[in-house]
Amino acid sequence: MQRKDIRKRNSIRHAEYYNMVEIQDELYRQGIMKKKFHNLMPIIASPQNIRMAYRNLKSNKGSNTPGVDGKTFSDYAGLEDAELIGKVQEKLLNC
């Protein structure tokens, strides 16, 4: 199996684990129908989406590259789940 296929399968499995499949399927369905999206921030900032994104991104090669704040994923690895979610939500909602 090719690496791309494995990543896609893992991403789908993570979406199932974090109960995001129905939301993603509905967004996909609406996108096919050319619907314009509004007010997506509640989905983006939801705890389950943040958990899924963190899990998917932490294993990427780029996760060891510091961001604009100089931090990498390893700087956040020791945080409790609620603290990590709170920090991400704060950044997202204060843009």
Rank of each mutant, 00 (worst) to 15 (best):
A15H: 15
D81F: 04
R9C: 11
A45F: 03
I32G: 10
A15D: 12
G86S: 13
E80T: 03
F37T: 14
E26G: 04
L40M: 15
E90R: 07
I23V: 13
R13P: 01
Q30L: 11
R3S: 14
K36H: 13
D69P: 02
R29Q: 11
V21K: 14
D25Q: 15
K36R: 08
G67H: 09
Y28H: 07
C95Y: 01
V21Y: 14
Y54D: 00
Y54E: 02
I32F: 06
N49E: 02
E83K: 15
Y76Q: 07
K91E: 01
Q89H: 05
Y54G: 00
C95A: 07
M41G: 00
L93M: 02
K91L: 03
N39C: 14
T65Q: 09
A15V: 06
K8Y: 01
I12F: 11
G67D: 15
S63P: 09
N19P: 00
P47H: 05
D25A: 07
Y17I: 10
I23S: 03
I6Q: 10
S11A: 14
Q48I: 05
D5V: 03
K8W: 02
V68T: 05
Q48A: 05
E80A: 12
S46H: 09
L79E: 10
I50D: 02
K8Q: 04
L40G: 09
